[in-house]
Design a protein around this nucleic acid. Structure first.
Length: 558
RNA sequence: GCGCCUAUAGCUCAGAGGAUAGAGCACCGGCCUCCGGAGCCGGGUGCGCAGGUUCGAGUCCUGCUAGGCGCGCCA
């Protein structure tokens, strides 16, 4: 249990006891006592913790909120860890604690290191997080970059919250787009010898296809001996493999590595689609109409029924996706979280229907819809067309603004909000970027500790120093921020809100910078110096933890 | 027409039913005998509109308005 939770527990039982005492004395009449809410107020004038219990119960007690608060306060045990208590505002009870819990926080971080802030909340639950899943027919775009940042950080948050997590990239290498890509690649290959060779009307004209054709020609000279059918199959397999490798490299550079790259073609070759179809068939959920085979998804709340096998005998996208999700569930995952683009939101109904048809509850599948990213340059939206080969790729973005700034930028916004990414601004102001502000705090601490070492100062442990010397306002504010981490991480995971972490990091950095200007360290008398060295060491640890969650580097020097 | 998302400061965006709504950028002042000035301290404007629920609403509900996206035997 975190230090903050422990304080809240103690306060809760104190309040509970006070209410019971008031009831026994006939001062308060409550049929039932609701859960006692406690929060850390934003404003430090409002104490270390505050409760709204009097506001919540006022109606029940038929008294004014402030009066209820006053009665509760009068029955609080005296002389405890509660240093002071007051009734404030509309009826809040504000608690001012003795500083011990702050110092306990420092000892907890020192002891727990990079596991500080973790919890066991998700123990027993296995989450499969699927994200990016860009088609293997071209380079990834900036929405993919946004998805990668959000998904990767969510995965890290889930792990911190004690869940078992698997991350997957679904490679759609067996669908229409892969065929179109294969035909495009084959045509470019032919054109190396015969410039007149026709390029498919719906093909991808972008130059990377031409570049790829040249590699293909170089590495596979026997290709000309194949039949057209064989060659297309080869292009499809080889070409998508090349794209997957390129995507892997881009993502790795971006700090994202998946546990599994799941190939759609493996589902086909394993007969998983047929298996899924007969599974549904056995449950009487399929019917034939208009020469096609349909899934009666309306039985599970979908808007309309969906085609599973087209009239030409081929499968739809949803068929493979049902098989894929069935596979995930069979692997023992208890919750599936998919991150999709906004153009897929209409797809939620049929997938939730499929999950239920497979015998699981609707909320086994959770879909997070990521909104679009509009790129701005010179104040105007950059027009992009994948088909015309005109677009800013994820690789371009990372080249231009850097991994850390790009990730931080994406993670500073809520996933479901539309995002304008001003490239000029991101590049121009790269030195003023918030991410550097946080990294600078880390580098500064490293520098202090480095200089301390050079001066021959041994890094003290918390039990060797007098932590009560950390009495400055800036020090208390800093420690409170450290204490807030466990709740912050858990809430971010539960609400699927990675965008909560960047403000936390910025606040922590800001509180550190402020502390730094107000409180010197190495020049101070030994007891103060040592206490502060312990403090900044723990600040560094938490900065590393938080930057690690964001997937942003924590440099020792900048 | 139906569905999803969005609307908060000049701009880009945070915001957890609570007290005086925040950050960055931009703009204007201060702060270096001393650990990194990529820093600190101060300065000001805002919840699209109208109802409702609540002791209390930027937050929840309803209806409008505006923008983005979707509604395929495409993926």
């Amino acid at each position: 249990m975190s230090v903050v939770s422990k304080q809240k527990e103690q306060l809760r039982s104190a309040i509970q006891a006070a209410i019971e005492a008031a009831q026994a004395g006939g001062e308060l009449e409550l049929a039932s006592v609701p859960e006692i809410g406690l929060e850390v107020p934003r404003d430090t004038d409002h104490g270390d913790f505050a409760s709204n219990i009097a506001l919540v119960t006022a109606k029940l007690a038929r008294k004014a909120p402030r009066e209820v608060a006053q009665i509760i306060v009068s029955h609080l045990p005296a002389g405890s860890f509660i240093r002071d208590v007051e009734v404030a505002g509309p009826g809040f009870i504000n608690f001012f604690l003795s500083d011990d819990w702050l110092f306990e926080t420092i000892r907890a971080i020192e002891k727990q290191g990079q596991t500080y802030g973790d919890s066991t909340h998700g123990a027993g639950e296995k989450i499969l997080l699927e994200f990016v899943s860009a088609n293997p027919v071209g380079p990834m775009n900036v929405v993919n970059a946004r998805a990668a940042a959000v998904g990767d950080t969510l995965a890290r948050l889930f792990r911190a919250a004690g869940y078992t997590v698997g991350t997957e990239f679904y490679v759609n290498d067996a669908g229409n787009q892969a065929d179109v890509f294969a035909r495009s690649l084959e045509a470019r290959y032919q054109q190396l010898r015969n410039p007149e060779y026709p390029f498919p009307e719906d093909g991808y004209p972008a130059s990377y296809v031409t570049d790829l054709a040249e590699v293909l020609d170089r590495e596979h000279p026997h290709l000309g001996e194949m039949s057209l059918e064989e060659r297309l199959a080869f292009c499809k397999r080889w070409g998508t493999d090349q794209m997957v490798e390129a995507q892997k490299a881009d993502l790795k550079r971006y700090g994202v590595e998946f546990d599994l790259w799941f190939r759609e073609r493996d589902l086909h070759s394993a007969g998983a689609l047929k298996e899924a179809i007969s599974f549904l068939e056995n449950r009487g959920l399929l019917f034939e109409a208009e020469d096609a085979l349909w899934f009666r998804s309306t039985d599970f709340g979908d808007d309309k029924d969906r085609v599973i096998v087209k009239s030409d005998g081929s499968y739809t996208y949803v068929t493979a996706d049902i098989a894929y999700h069935h596979d995930k569930l069979k692997r023992g995952f208890t919750r599936l979280i998919d991150i999709w683009g906004p153009d897929h939101h209409g797809y939620i109904g049929r997938m939730k229907a499929a999950i239920q048809a497979l015998g699981y509850s609707e909320d086994t599948l959770e879909v997070l819809i990521l909104q679009y990213v509009a790129l701005l340059r010179n104040g105007e939206q950059v027009k992009m067309s994948k088909r015309a080969g005109e677009f800013i790729t994820m690789e371009d973005l990372v080249d231009e603004v850097g991994k850390d700034a790009a990730r931080f930028f994406f993670l500073n916004r809520s996933p479901e909000s539309h995002l304008d990414f001003d490239l000029d601004l991101a590049v121009e102001q790269s030195n003023e970027n918030p991410v550097f502000y946080v990294q600078y705090a880390h580098a500064r601490i490293c520098s202090i500790l480095r200089q301390g070492r050079e001066m021959g100062v041994d890094l003290p442990k918390s039990d060797q120093v007098d932590l009560s010397l950390l009495a400055h306002e800036a020090e208390h504010a800093l420690i409170k921020q450290l204490a807030a981490l466990p709740e912050e991480l858990l809430t971010a995971a539960l609400e699927r809100a990675p965008q909560r972490i960047t403000p936390y990091a910025l606040d922590l950095a800001s509180l550190f910078h402020s502390f730094y200007t107000h409180c010197h360290i190495l020049g101070e008398a030994e007891p103060v110096r040592d206490a502060r060295l312990v403090l900044v060491t723990q600040v560094r640890s938490v900065l590393q933890k938080v930057l690690g969650i964001l997937g942003v580097d924590a440099p020792e020097q900048m």
